[in-house]
Design a protein around this nucleic acid. Structure first.
Lengths: 233, 233
DNA sequence: CGGCAATTTGACTATCCTCAACAGGGGTGG
DNA sequence: CCACCCCTGTTGAGGATAGTCAAATTGCCG
């Protein structure tokens, strides 16, 4: 009966803390939902009404200034958790970058369930602590790194996060990776706190230096991973 | 017997989730410790060996690039929690900005205690979620705001965080606040991702515009809070 | 009152942004 | 199937913001 048995993130998401019986209850209050690129699940400033687990795809978390500048403050991949449990407004929007499948819960229901299942809350705590670590590392990039360092860091991190999750990583030669970016140039700029032009120029520079190749818009072949790591600062 | 009864943050820190008996156990595995300005409690990259509650004072969380650039990734105030429970290395150093008093625990002991006390873990989860929200808001500042917006935002947030906690807030006239900054100019620069010179120039500009006054190095009198909010973007 | 560190100020520079034009490529409709 | 078009990305020129380096000043502490 439970879809969860077939769920590909069953053992990596916070659900991994639950036994079969508990999982059935959780399953009964959630439902899966598909979202297409550009479609939002949660809007910035809205009351937090739903939370979710990512099953497939990549989504961005983003905030905007009043005059429309955007900053992407997080990127979530399969098995990641999204939303703001336990009250409050969501400080950022959540929007799909690719076709995505998520397992959504009403925040109210999820909160109640979580409070009765300490193991679930524990998993969520570990995940949140990890996300906070990652976010703080990102602050160093935003505040202190140059444009070349920013793009190099971005590519290194994207290889690491996409690498294990089957979104298009493959190494025939050591230090070589094929990346299919779930980001447009504008979105990369919004992650790095740069403009689209600066991102583009850094891409072509890396290509001219033989560090990467750009077979098409969304594809990056990394020819010299070590050089990227070195340049990431 | 328990020091906790006298603790000024007893009802605001994560300890608020515990009853008298539980608190006594927690108290038995922790001890208070004083740290002076510039003194570190935790170093970046180190294995996480201790966690703590802040009782008094202000501390910074900071990361550095290999070549010595620094970014402050968090500032903690009384009742805040510091350290990285549940394994891992601490991704940032923790250093006192003022004289501070903290209630420290060995991470190992704390982890074990927390796992047995879901209400404590719940409080910690809420606190961590809040900190993540705050951190993400800070990313918008680092990635997308100009120097004038950055300093204005910094002053607004510092008023709000110091305001309630008795560290030197007072309003005789509406919109007027007296701030005693726990930061040097360099530290403000490290929070905002700017240089010390730029921070200084923005301070004098605000002073010349009559938005603030600078009676001495560490003191800022805010004359027109609304103007700051408007400039914060 | 003197010494020292923190901060401010000034002059100059570099990086990144802005604005504008151009190119490429993927999809659609003829 | 091909031509066209539109969107995304690239390239270029010029400018603004913030950084760098250096010197002057201010407080602060003994």
């Amino acid at each position: 009966m439970s879809n969860c048995d077939l769920c590909v993130v069953r053992n990596r998401a916070i659900c991994a803390s639950l036994d079969a019986k508990e999982l059935e209850v959780l399953n009964s209050i959630g439902r899966t939902r598909k979202v297409g690129p550009g479609e939002s699940l949660i809007w910035e400033g809205e009351d937090s009404v739903l939370v979710a687990n990512v099953i497939e795809g990549v989504l961005k978390l983003s905030t905007n200034t009043e005059d429309g500048r955007e900053q992407i403050v997080g990127v979530v991949y399969p098995s990641d958790f999204i939303g703001r449990p336990f009250g409050g407004k969501s400080g950022h929007g959540v929007t799909a970058l690719t076709d995505a499948k998520v397992c959504v819960f009403s925040r109210r229901d999820f909160d109640a369930f979580a409070r009765e299942h300490p193991k679930l809350e524990h998993k969520l705590l570990e995940r949140t602590l990890g996300e906070l670590d990652r976010t703080r590392r990102w602050m160093l990039l935003l505040g202190r790194k140059s444009a070349p360092e920013k793009l190099a860091s971005f590519l290194v991190e994207t290889v690491e996060r996409l690498g294990g999750s089957g979104c298009g990583a493959d190494g025939d030669k050591p230090g070589q990776h094929q990346l299919i970016l779930p980001f447009s140039r504008q979105q990369i700029a919004d992650v790095l706190g740069l403009t689209i032009e600066t991102v583009s120029r850094q891409f072509t520079r890396l290509k001219n230096e033989g560090v990467i190749d750009l077979p098409s818009r969304r594809v990056v072949t990394i020819l010299d991973f070590e050089a990227l790591v070195a340049e990431a600062g």
